[in-house]
């Protein structure tokens, strides 16, 4: 009896791992996910290798070269401080990806923890945590992020925290739903019967089985997190000058749009492309990892 349940426990614990090969195969077959993944990898490479790729120091002020149109030397032209826009856009990739990573790491950690506890415990704990979540969801995301960011003081790091604060409830809901479904499953019952404590059950049995929707959601959210960060910087609540952040570059560049179109255009395009890449990846992953979706 005891031996049997241990075996069962192992098998279920390995369940996600066992299907991993299957998932990868499915992923490879999905063109959308594949293209998105490749482009996202390229973007990450651009960010990591920025110092090698960027032709100029993104912050080197050269006022006598201000507002030069795109040329062979400055492919994207220069900004109002004479800084090379191409280099600034490339370095901007770093900040945007970093911001997205920090936002999602924070949001997923908080959201998952809340969701797991709420979904697993149920009852009063669930009620309390979900009402708290609802409170956060009741505000329009950008408005709440603006408020938090303004209260903390404008900086890129504070903007990341602000966005994480408005982002975690989505993960809390997602994980709670999954957890409620999973907690009645046989393998969870079995684990409990074999003497596993709540912590073990949550972290080793339920969490791994929630990971697929979390990953899909995250890949979709990378783009939105980048967009929101840029949005906060655009209204002056994020990165501070002269940080090469896309949103703040567009904000400054927009005042020059009638004469120096390149100033706002290239950072704006960078935002557009980066967000599209991660949407592509997210959609692809969702399609590949959620078989039900494909049947539609």
């Amino acid at each position: 009896m005891a031996a049997d349940s241990v075996a069962l426990h192992r098998a279920t614990a390995n369940a996600p791992g066992a299907t991993r090969a299957l998932l990868l195969a499915r992923l490879r077959r999905n063109r959308l996910a594949f293209v998105g993944g490749a482009l996202a990898a390229a973007l990450i490479a651009l960010a990591v290798l920025a110092p090698l790729i960027a032709p100029f120091d993104p912050n080197a002020l050269a006022p006598e070269q201000r507002l030069l149109p795109p040329s062979a030397t400055h492919l994207f032209g220069t900004d109002d401080g004479g800084r090379d826009l191409l280099s600034r856009v490339i370095y901007g990739t770093r900040l945007s990806l970093l911001a997205a990573a920090v936002v999602l790491a924070l949001a997923v950690t908080i959201g998952t923890a809340v969701g797991l506890v709420a979904g697993y415990r149920g009852g009063f704990v669930d009620e309390a945590l979900m009402r708290l979540t609802d409170m956060f969801l009741a505000f329009p995301a950008l408005v709440l992020a603006m408020g938090v960011s303004a209260a903390l003081g404008a900086s890129l790091f504070n903007a990341m925290i602000a966005i994480a604060v408005v982002w975690w409830p989505w993960y809390a809901r997602l994980v709670r739903g999954q957890t409620m479904q999973l907690r009645g499953e046989a393998f969870v019952e079995a684990a409990r019967a074999s003497g596993a404590d709540d912590r073990t059950i949550l972290l080793r049995h339920i969490l791994p089985n929630c990971s697929t929707p979390i990953i899909v959601q995250m890949s979709l959210d990378v783009g939105y997190a980048m967009l929101t960060t840029a949005g906060l910087s655009f209204i002056g609540l994020g990165a501070q000058p002269p940080t090469p952040e896309w949103g703040s570059m567009v904000a400054i560049g927009k005042d020059f749009i009638l004469d120096q179109w390149w100033f706002a255009t290239f950072p704006g395009l960078a935002i557009l492309i980066a967000v599209m890449i991660f949407n592509l990846l997210g959609d692809g992953l969702q399609e590949a990892l959620t078989p039900g979706l494909r049947r539609r």
Binding site: L61, P241, P242, I252
Partner: peptide, 23 residues
């Protein structure tokens, strides 16, 4: 803003850091 940015660049030459904040 440009005044702050130039101030930052000039002060760097003197070994003085300048932190810029927009409010």
């Amino acid at each position: 803003r440009p005044m702050g940015e130039l101030f930052q660049a000039n002060m760097k030459d003197l070994g003085i850091g300048v932190e810029i904040q927009e409010l």
